[in-house]
Amino acid sequence: MKQAMYFVFAGISVLLFFYTIDLIFYGTPLDAGLYFNQKIFYYHVPQAFVLFLAVIVAGVASLLYIKRRDGRYDDVAEAAGEVAVLFGAMMLVSGSIWGKAAWGVWWQWDARLTTSLLLWMLMVGYMLVRKYGGPSADRLAAGLAIFGAVNIPLVYFSVKIWRTLHPEASVVPGLQGSMRTTFWLSVLLFQIVFVLLLIARVGQSRIQRQVREVRERALDAGLLD
């Protein structure tokens, strides 16, 4: 049943993917100032949403892991961290392409860009710790996630004061008509993909952890050497 639901949602996301592509290119009007370049917005912003959501999930899961010491929370934290790195990379690449078209440069040291980049770097560091930290890395990774979560408002505040160049007013609430529908459909699509990837990855980490635990128990029992 669970698996069937998973595939149903995977199917929905595939269909939605084609549908949003169609909407983005044929169903929405051209932007008055940016023309065709504005189209990347429909995927760029949902990717950023997923990055932030995944970071929040990883932070909450790490906190629960530290408090409850239950390996299941650690699996979720690991999976969410990996998804955050993936979507962060997509966000940075699509944002650079858009920036080149809209501002004429690949990168600007604007508050929002810098904060997102630092957040992504934090998550990359988190994955490096997980990968190369060895046996006790889970606790270190959880600590990093907690300190990182505390740090995010401080980073945002300090970077904002350092770089108040581009107070890019939020465009999302002002979207009209088909642009609005398309945008929120893309957001929905990316959220579904996020949840699906998260579930798949959590399952994988859980199996890895169980294998590890069984192996340790077998070692303790003297069945393995």
């Binding site: 630092l118 934090l122 560091g125 490096l128 006790s136 890395a137 270190l140």
Partner: peptide, 14 residues
């Protein structure tokens, strides 16, 4: 932890 020396800057600087 393994590879302490390389991981310290990785976790500390962000």
């Amino acid at each position: 932890t393994r590879s302490r020396d390389v991981l310290l800057p990785v976790v500390l600087y962000p």
